[in-house]
Simulated scan of single mutants.
Amino acid sequence: MMGAQVASGLDDRPERYTGPIVVLLAVCAVAFAADAWGPARATTAFGAAVLTGYAAELAGVLTGFPFGEYRYTGVLWPQVAGVPVVVALAWGGMGLAAYAVAAAVVPAGGWARVCAGAGALTAWDLFLDPQMVRLGLWTWAEDGFYRGIPLTNFAGWLLVSALVMLVVGRVCGAAGPGRGLLALYTVMAAMETLAFAAVFDPPDPLVAVAGGITMGAFAAPAWRRSWQR
Rank of each mutant, 00 (worst) to 15 (best):
D201A: 15
A56V: 02
L182Q: 05
W111M: 14
R16H: 14
A56S: 14
V22P: 00
A100S: 12
M215D: 06
V106M: 13
V86F: 07
A190N: 00
Q131W: 08
V75R: 15
V27L: 15
V114T: 13
F65P: 01
G110H: 11
F145D: 00
A217D: 05
G216M: 11
D204F: 01
G169W: 07
G74C: 03
A198P: 00
D204E: 10
V85W: 05
G156D: 05
V114E: 01
V171T: 12
T193Y: 08
L51E: 02
Y146M: 03
Y17A: 12
L181F: 05
A219V: 08
A174T: 15
V105L: 08
A42M: 05
A174Q: 13
F46I: 01
V114S: 08
L89F: 07
I21E: 13
A183R: 09
A33K: 04
R225H: 12
A183F: 08
F65K: 12
A29C: 05
R16M: 12
P203D: 04
T43E: 09
G64M: 08
A210V: 14
A98V: 06
L194T: 11
P203F: 10
A45C: 05
L126M: 13
V168M: 11
W140V: 04
M215Q: 12
A195Y: 15
G92H: 06
F218S: 04
P14A: 13
A100V: 03
T18A: 15
T63F: 10
M132D: 11
T139M: 03
A112W: 06
R13S: 13
G92C: 08
F32N: 11
P205E: 13
Y72G: 01
P203R: 14
R170A: 15
M1E: 06
L62V: 07
A120C: 00
I149F: 04
F145P: 00
L58D: 06
L58E: 08
D201V: 15
V30C: 10
A190P: 00
I213R: 13
D201M: 13
S161K: 12
L58R: 13
G64W: 03
T214Q: 02
G74Q: 04
A48R: 02
Y70Q: 14
L126G: 04
M215W: 06
D11E: 00
E57M: 14
V80P: 09
M2K: 04
A175D: 10
S226Y: 14
G92Q: 02
V114L: 07
A26L: 09
A103M: 05
A98L: 10
A112M: 13
L135K: 13
A174G: 08
R134P: 01
E142C: 07
A103G: 01
R16F: 11
P221Q: 05
T193I: 03
V86A: 05
A49K: 04
A7I: 06
A189P: 02
T139P: 00
A40Q: 10
C28Y: 12
R16L: 15
C28F: 13
A210K: 06
L206M: 15
G148Y: 02
Y72S: 10
R134K: 09
P66E: 10
L89A: 14
T73W: 05
T44H: 08
Y72M: 09
P221N: 03
G117K: 07
T139Y: 00
T63R: 14
A29P: 01
G178W: 02
V75W: 06
V23D: 08
